[in-house]
Design a protein around this nucleic acid. Structure first.
Length: 544
RNA sequence: UGGGGUGUCGCCAAGCGGUAAGGCACUGGGUUUUGAUCCCAGCAUGCGCAGGUUCGAAUCCUGCCACCCCAGCCA
């Protein structure tokens, strides 16, 4: 599990290092815009950037790309810091914001104007779009393209001074309106926004655009490898153009990799935001969400997310990863670490007719393979609950649980036999009357009985009533229809049960458990007496 | 009909001219007081397609085809 990753980016970095192309160590950055919560797609980028720096002995900046105050907030900033840290990464003193560089950015823009490489354009947004041309036809020059440097300098200074309303003017790079790459058709690099910024307040009314900002921040921070997703490939010429046309002594290479796509969910902040706003989920941390906060609340360990990111690899292929891989990674971590416990989701009362009135206390290991977790006490008595699903009046062939006249072992307890099925007036089973075999006690069984199976149970008197929430895919289809999210939602993405957990689990401080035969569960971080199912156990039982 | 990318098993992914790694999933079998875990075995005569170069091609060349991204004063 510790083989070194050898994706194309790491190969490239290795090569740069070998050729002495990188002075000092490797420096990367994770640059989220604080306009939403981080999701597992961001985790891929976080693991890459922080992972690479760690492997090659460098460091990573956590840089907030906060150039669009209209969409950003401090809540998002805080959630992002929390999530990156929870994932296990430390940016140390390298916490920055694009807004930290607003003054320098402004000066570089002035420099571009002085070099005749940028101009103030007074066309409306509509007009700029119309003159940009199409994918197959070149655009046409703005009538303001030939403004004098002096006029541009004056106008830009007045833009900054707040003399104009939003949209009245923009600053554009003067590149090539006929370029086959539309990003190079005199892109807007500054716009006027009379909007309060969460960090700089009302100090600025002109804000730099991503394409102008990102490359400069990368250069100022000495980022040796600027890693981003594929959709920015067409922006790379612009990234390079900006750095080539200002007086700056560092020029990071931009390297793109494919973003993560996961089956049965969506990975766009816009859509996730919409689901939160529409209240189809309880919030950004709803356990069904692909957000880091949602996964955490569902009980997914950070180590599982890191392992997942490592297993999917880094390439330029547009893949669609199956949820089964994430589930595998989660189970693998929890299998080793989660203490075992018993819970009954859908209780069916069982009375042990030949068991004495006084109960007894049994002992069970918290983990079958990890003795370090120790043991817990398990109370056993005449009145128990078993899982309704574990009893069948007419068992299908291959059924290994309880049926009339049949034997089954109660895990860690005794072997029982079902003598009588009690039903109510509607014919619904309300109780099972069983006998137990005193000499079949777990660990000291001399009964010679060989039941077909083992089932879980809880003691009726001491078990704690709890709410159990079982989660499934948020969307029914592997690739949900993004145009109709509402009807693409899986109606059974969360199913709630009122069940029980054994007393030792209820009184424990531990957060994650494997409820035997049911799955891995985690205590909900907000709601008392509530457990979220993190993932089911693997199940090779094929009925029929 | 412009530009930029990508095509290796159901999914992810190694491979970088010397004769197809690995993981997930799946299928068998063994162990098991979780139908779990664990263990063992199986799972691409073929790398989008068609040609070509070569003693030898998934790897090089040519031509097709398919899919993804781009026309925000978003990032």
């Amino acid at each position: 599990m510790s083989e070194e990753a050898t994706d194309f980016i790491r190969q490239r970095i290795r090569q740069d290092l070998d050729q002495g192309a990188v002075e000092g160590g490797v420096v990367t950055r994770f640059p989220p815009e604080p306009n939403g919560y981080l999701h597992i797609g961001h985790a891929k980028s976080i693991c890459l950037n922080f992972g690479v720096a760690r492997e090659f002995g460098g460091y990573t900046y956590l840089r907030f790309d906060d150039t669009n105050p209209a969409k950003e907030s401090d809540e998002y900033v805080e959630s992002i810091k929390r999530d990156v840290a929870w994932l296990g990464y430390d940016w140390g003193s390298h916490l920055t914001h694009a807004s930290d560089y607003f003054d320098q950015l402004y000066n570089f823009a002035v420099e571009l104007i002085e070099r005749g490489k940028a101009f103030v354009c007074s066309l409306s947004g509509e007009e700029i779009r119309a003159s940009r041309g199409t994918l197959t036809e070149p655009g046409t020059d703005s009538p303001y393209r030939s403004r004098s440097i002096e006029e541009n300098l004056d106008l830009f200074a007045r833009m900054k001074a707040g003399e104009f309303a939003d949209g009245e003017h923009v600053l554009r790079a003067k590149i090539d309106m006929a370029s086959a790459n539309v990003n190079l058709r005199d892109p807007v690099i500054y716009r006027i926004r009379h909007v309060e910024h969460q960090r700089t307040g009302d100090r600025w009314v002109v804000y730099p655009m991503y394409d102008f900002t990102h490359c400069i921040c990368d250069a100022l921070e000495g980022i040796t490898h600027s890693l981003c997703t594929l959709e920015f490939q067409d922006h790379r010429p612009l990234y390079d153009w900006v750095l080539d046309n200002i007086n700056i002594n560092f020029h990071p290479p931009q390297i793109e990799f494919s973003r993560l796509a996961l089956e049965h969910t969506v990975m766009s902040k816009r859509l996730l935001n919409q689901m939160v706003d529409d209240a189809v989920v309880s919030g950004w941390d709803d356990p069904r969400m692909p957000t880091i906060a949602g996964l955490r609340r569902r009980g997914v360990p950070a180590a599982a997310i890191r392992d997942f990111c490592k297993r999917i690899g880094i390439t330029k292929q547009d893949g669609l990863v199956e949820m089964a891989l994430l589930d595998f990674c989660i189970r693998q971590v929890l299998e080793k670490s989660a203490p075992r416990g018993m819970s009954v989701l859908d209780p069916l009362p069982v009375t042990l007719t030949n068991y004495p009135d006084d109960g007894e206390t049994l002992e069970a290991a918290w983990h079958p393979q990890n003795a370090e977790l120790g043991n817990r006490a398990l109370s056993f008595s005449r009145q128990l609950y078993i899982e309704r699903e574990d009893f069948s009046e007419e068992p299908p062939k291959g059924f290994k649980r309880l049926s009339p006249g049949g034997l089954v072992r109660l895990r860690y307890g005794f072997i029982i036999q079902c003598d009588e099925v009690i039903k109510d007036a509607d014919g619904a089973i309300v109780e099972l009357r069983c006998r137990y075999f005193p000499e079949s006690k777990s660990g000291s069984d001399t009964s010679g009985l060989k039941p077909k199976g083992v089932i879980h149970w809880v003691d009726a008197a001491s078990a704690q009533p709890v709410t159990l929430r079982l989660y499934q895919q948020l969307f029914t289809d592997p690739v949900p229809d993004l145009d109709d999210l509402a009807s693409a939602l899986n109606p059974d993405s969360v199913v709630e049960f009122s069940g029980f957990v054994e007393a030792a689990v209820a009184s424990s401080e531990m957060q994650h458990f494997q409820f035997e035969r049911l799955g891995y569960y985690a205590r909900d971080s907000e709601l008392a007496d509530t457990f979220n199912r993190t993932v089911t156990l693997r199940d090779s039982y094929k009925p029929g």
